[in-house]
């Protein structure tokens, strides 16, 4: 019986492998990069999208009366907010009102507004095409807003990162935006991944390792400890956005392991942030806080930017490059070294 059905079973396994494995590999591919889940709305395209109140002549059915006035003409500002300066209040005459319909205020400047969450009181840096375009300080609720204008219409790659209260830098959150000339694009839902640090670089098997970092206050942190089997621990951050877990390493095998974390709040979720490695062995070794200088910082100015790129470009495919420039230590400066630098970029 089994012998008779074996060919059919093998046939089905083959078909399923063709269909399912590529799907599985796609799912894996989608989850590896640090992709931003952001919402982009365009102020100036005539469509009212959250958080816009209006857009051009489209008032979304609102009027002066719906805004608490008794009459007048409601219009829309260049920031896609209601302009009630021509609305009137008080009982004056019959006021049949007439005419009008919200005037269109031409949107001349091309700009992008960024709204998101980082860490309470942290400095948030915005990169436009890999160069610093703006910085701001997040509020105590970790929310931030930035606005850049004077752009041309075209495709931009924007990135944001932040530093927590210990000076630990987040991963770079990157999102492409196509900007239309004469409009304002509103980007909402930017949610920077939590920072993460461990208190030990090596931990004796059976002891605990502290995994901690910072995110948005009252957010749910999911900490992944990657071993043969992946362990997940959840923790709610305190009012300063800090989280800490003491992970019992008795469940881990001797050897190298990794941990990473992500945050969730009100249905919004970050990608996993930086990956931290630690060793489960026979002794405890205290881990220093991550250095401010990092890989790719060739001139040791605590940042990875166009200066470092230029130093590496000078040595591109030249013989005997300095060890500090040859990031992967293969004796030459080639595309791989630039890729490593691009990963650690700070602008």
């Amino acid at each position: 019986m089994i012998k008779q059905k074996l060919p059919i079973i093998v046939l089905w396994v083959s078909i399923l492998s063709v269909v399912l494995v590529p799907i599985a590999s796609y799912v894996h591919a989608a989850s590896t990069g640090i992709n931003a889940t952001v919402k982009i709305t365009v102020c100036g395209d005539g469509a009212v999208e959250t958080p816009e109140q209006c857009d051009g002549s489209n008032l979304g059915g609102a009027s002066c009366t719906s805004q608490g006035f008794t009459g007048g003409s409601l219009s829309c500002s260049s920031a896609c907010e209601f302009n009630t300066s021509s609305c009137t209040s008080g009982s004056s005459g019959s006021g049949s009102g007439g005419g009008g319909g919200g005037g269109i205020i031409p949107v001349s400047s091309t700009s992008v507004v960024f709204n998101g969450r980082a860490y309470p009181g942290s400095t948030v840096t915005l990169l436009k095409d890999a160069q610093v375009a703006a910085t701001t300080i997040a509020g105590q609720d970790a929310k931030f807003q930035m606005n850049i204008s004077g752009l041309s219409g075209g495709n931009y790659i924007f990135s944001v990162y932040s530093e927590d209260k210990r000076g630990i830098r987040s991963s770079l959150l990157t999102f492409p935006v196509s900007v239309t000339s004469g409009t304002t694009a509103n980007i909402t839902g930017i949610f920077i991944a939590p920072t993460i640090v461990t208190d030990k670089s090596e931990v004796r098997r059976g002891d605990t390792i502290a995994i901690f970092g910072q995110s948005v206050p009252a957010s749910e942190i999911t900490i992944s400890v990657n071993s043969e089997e992946e362990f997940f621990v959840k923790k709610i951050t305190d009012t300063s956005g800090a989280y800490l877990i003491n992970f019992d390493t008795s469940v881990l095998e001797i050897g190298q392991h990794q941990t990473k974390s992500k945050a969730a709040l009100n249905g919004e979720i970050t990608a996993f942030g930086k990956v931290i490695g630690f060793l489960v062995g026979t002794k405890n070794v205290v881990a220093p806080l991550p250095k401010t200088t990092q890989k790719g910082d060739l001139n040791k100015d605590s940042g990875v930017n166009i200066v470092d790129f230029s130093i590496a470009a000078y040595w591109y495919k030249r013989s005997s490059p300095p060890a500090s420039v040859d990031l992967n230590g293969d004796g030459k400066v080639d595309l791989v070294d630039f890729s490593i630098m691009a990963f650690y970029w700070t602008g």
Partner: peptide
């Protein structure tokens, strides 16, 4: 409007023929 932010080797016609290019996008793209 290129997705490449910094050219290591800007696309240019080479004397040996062809157009060689090499560049990076910090933060990445997909």
């Amino acid at each position: 409007n290129s997705v490449i932010n910094f050219w290591i080797k800007k696309p240019q016609s080479e004397s040996l023929g062809g157009i060689v290019f090499s560049g990076i996008t910090p933060g990445g793209f997909s």
